Computed example of a mutant assay.
Amino acid sequence: MKRRTFLTASATGLAGLAGCLGNSDDAGSGGAGSTGDPTATTTAQTELSGTLNVATYSALVDAPSSSPGAWLKKEFEKEYPKATLQWQTPENEVNYFIQRKAQGVGIDADVYVGLNVDQLITIDDKLGGKQLFTPIADSLSNYGHVKEGLTFDPKNRAVPYDTGYVSLVYDETKVDGPGTFDALTKPKFEGTLLTENAQQAATGRAFLLWTIHQMGEDNYLDYWKRLSNNDVQILGSWDAAYTAFSNGERPIVVSYSTDQVYAHRDGANLKKHQIGFLNGQGYANPEGMAKFADTDNSKLADAFLDFMLSKKAQSKIPTLNVSFPATDWAEPGAEFEKYAKAPEKPVTYSYDQLKGNVEGWVDEWARQIASK
């Protein structure tokens, strides 16, 4: 359940994400070069060879509870028997590659998995005209199955492969669901909320952006002062906040609306894992993948990106990464559809809305709220 990511799309495009799965008649896996001609697909799979270096965040590969990394490697190599998928998990994630590109040092990976809109803005701000990723979306045969409301890169570099909704998770044996943003500031909920630092954690930043979306740029700091006066606790990471919640230190935590999928698998009491959508909303965080501009393994990289959008992969990723699929032909199964909750009113910010604003919002929040 450890995520990153961030944005885009209209609320209309995101609405009903959980209810529109499996609506395609195409049952094929749809790897790279898939055109409906099985001979063409087989030829591409037979001829493509070499080692594909795919960089990502560590939880995608080695999360202790579940992660899709091992399954993706096995299935991709099964479809492309002459290829080898090699995962990389640099400590600083995509920032490692931003620094290398800025310094003019070579990039030792072909694909990056786990991009959010926030990171794209950082890339463009820090690298200017230097191209870290290359536009790729429209050349992928399976890209047409990506839900339009999830696309978040106006330059078509990052292709969505899943999405999550940041929400509240609460223990209803100890506290009622807040229901609204305003309720969280009332005496009834004093000392109940755990959240994450927006400078350090994707969930914390998403929750901050969610409050800005709700309260407005001119009023969000006043709202956070009310939260502070009501004894909100801000921790450095999602791991720290969720561990504190699990240990019973506080009954409400900012997390993901797929929490009950994990809880059900662990046999936990679901009353202690209720999903709270404030004002009927959840903050949408699509995750994307992209091809490095300097790759010398371009065709194999394209094959992997298309494989990630295939019906087979899109149906499996939700059960392993515990996040909503990005395509209209995914079939994640009964367990996921029962326990993964989607908000009635998804909200988010686009690339254009965040560029030039997000760092200022976060910095001002850090000065006035987090540092107190």
Rank of each mutant, 00 (worst) to 15 (best):
Y165H: 15
G191K: 12
P318R: 10
D218K: 12
F152T: 01
V322M: 06
T348W: 00
D352S: 11
T41N: 07
D26A: 11
A70I: 10
T180G: 07
L208T: 01
K188S: 13
A137L: 08
L270N: 04
Y57H: 15
D294M: 10
D37S: 14
V105E: 12
K355V: 09
D124V: 06
V358F: 08
A290M: 14
T195K: 01
D328Y: 07
P81C: 13
E337W: 04
G36D: 09
G36T: 04
A44I: 14
Q103M: 10
A241R: 03
T195I: 13
Q368W: 06
L60D: 00
E190R: 14
K2Q: 12
L300H: 02
F307T: 08
P325L: 05
N279H: 04
G248F: 05
F324L: 11
P81A: 13
L168P: 01
T89K: 05
S310L: 12
R205F: 02
W87D: 00
D231W: 02
E190H: 10
G179V: 08
N142D: 07
V362N: 01
E91A: 15
K101H: 07
E148S: 15
W87M: 07
N95F: 10
S24N: 04
V254R: 01
L132G: 09
S58Q: 11
D182T: 12
L300D: 00
F152V: 01
E91N: 11
L300E: 05
F207Y: 11
G149S: 07
P346R: 05
S10C: 08
K225E: 09
L21R: 03
N321S: 08
D110A: 04
L120F: 10
T8R: 00
G19T: 10
N219T: 06
N23S: 13
D296S: 15
A268W: 07
K225H: 15
P160E: 10
P251D: 09
W210Y: 11
Y283T: 02
W71T: 11
Y242W: 09
A15G: 05
F336C: 01
V113M: 13
D171K: 14
S67C: 11
N229H: 07
A340V: 04
K291P: 00
